[in-house]
Design a binder for these strands. Sequence first.
RNA 1: GGGCAGGUGGCCGAGUGGUCGAAGGCGCUCCCCUGCUAAGGGAGUAGGCGGUUUGUCCCGUCUCGAGGGUUCGAAUCCCUUCCUGCCCGCCA
Length: 424
Amino acid sequence: MHDIRFIKENPDIFDANMAKRGANYRAEDLIALDDARVANTRAMNDAQAAQKSASKKIGAAKASGDEAAAAKVMEEVASLKAEVQALEAKDRELSDDVRTALLPIPNLLADDVPEGDGEDDNVELRTWGEIKEIASPKDHVDLGEALGQMDFERAAILSGARFTLLRRDLAKLERALAHFMLQTHTEEFGYEEISPPALVLPEILEGTGQLPKFEEDLFKTTGDHYLIPTAEVPLTNMVRDDILSGEALPKRYTGWTHCFRSEAGSSGKDTRGMIRVHQFSKVELVSVTTPETSWEEHDRMTECAEHVLKQLELPFRTVVQCTGDIGFGSLKTYDLEVWLPGQQKYREISSCSNCGDFQARRMNARFRREAKGKPEFVHTLNGSGLAVGRTVVAVVENYQNPDGSITVPAVLVPFMGKAKIEAA
RNA sequence: GGGCAGGUGGCCGAGUGGUCGAAGGCGCUCCCCUGCUAAGGGAGUAGGCGGUUUGUCCCGUCUCGAGGGUUCGAAUCCCUUCCUGCCCGCCA
């Protein structure tokens, strides 16, 4: 959420950013809305002050036993009551209007976010690894089904379209990958492992930005809960409503959770296999930092995610998302795209974003620089480290052998207890 | 699910209609005294919004789990709701 005061002081910056995102919000409209709120607040405060001082007079008169004087002031003040109540009601209404207007507005953009219309305009920063020559490569669906360990038919019987079911060694591969990732992030990079709830309340999703604007992307229960679309949601809200001490920062959280996405609006896209499904597992990284260290942390986090791909020896490239592809709450986002031989393409496997104070403001997450200092909003970052389902796909496709077996990446052998995945 | 008891400042804890944003204690910060393995004295110590100011000091107002209500006035009374603890029931 934006700081209305920032918009008032920098209307041009705000408008230019919205234009870059192709979003239709204007500083002028928001300022007018807030000015109305401020005018009402002043009137309300004045009325409250008048009422309060009169009430004190009544109290003083009663204390000294002067009932006549008390009655006289009570009469004078009677009319103020309605006025104060009306102004208070108006204040609630206007404050709510401002917040409601601000909530659907996307974050500003870092200056170096490239302009573009969609993912094709993302800019490649670097590539890593060597793409192996594979004669007539198969994709993960053909490989997995031939192994008898990837069962889309059974998944469809159980749950309909866009679900995956893994068996035996491929199920174990998923678990091994997640275990390896968690191990890396906790032991090597100092993240705190969290096993959070997968069902959360609406205000939690509002905190990270999925609500109110993107409700159609979420699964909602028959009660008040929503299924999390990513562990970013609970992990970032770990600091909700907190005032942290400066020394406590940075906070680094990692967690392996299932993620649930309705995939509304992506019908016809990636319908084959386990690239785009309603349920997948992901190891997430979240950092909470001071404002001055968030960019440094952004690079560090991206390197943590890249490190996992390097250890798995999967070729990938790192791109920076353009203005047409970047997410709602992000100032700047790096995507890691892994090479998939079955598609002869790089596909997204991680996305690392610096959200600045955008989420912190929604969550009311703050810190104190010094013991007596004024609370300031923290900065929050999130990244996949990595999407486990897609990593299964990448391993299966990149490590395929001519006989249909899959070589287990060296670093996973201890977790798998074997070096090769074969048909039963 | 049924019953009982609670939710107060960083923490503990007082406060059942009037000058309470809140006693006292702990913790923390600063100052003083003293002088040594510890202690004594003093001051300060929440956040939001708005104003004023940019001498960052002051002023108004709101906030005692949350939301409504009664009242001239509510931490204190009423209603709703959430959470916590304990007992019973049920159950991975």
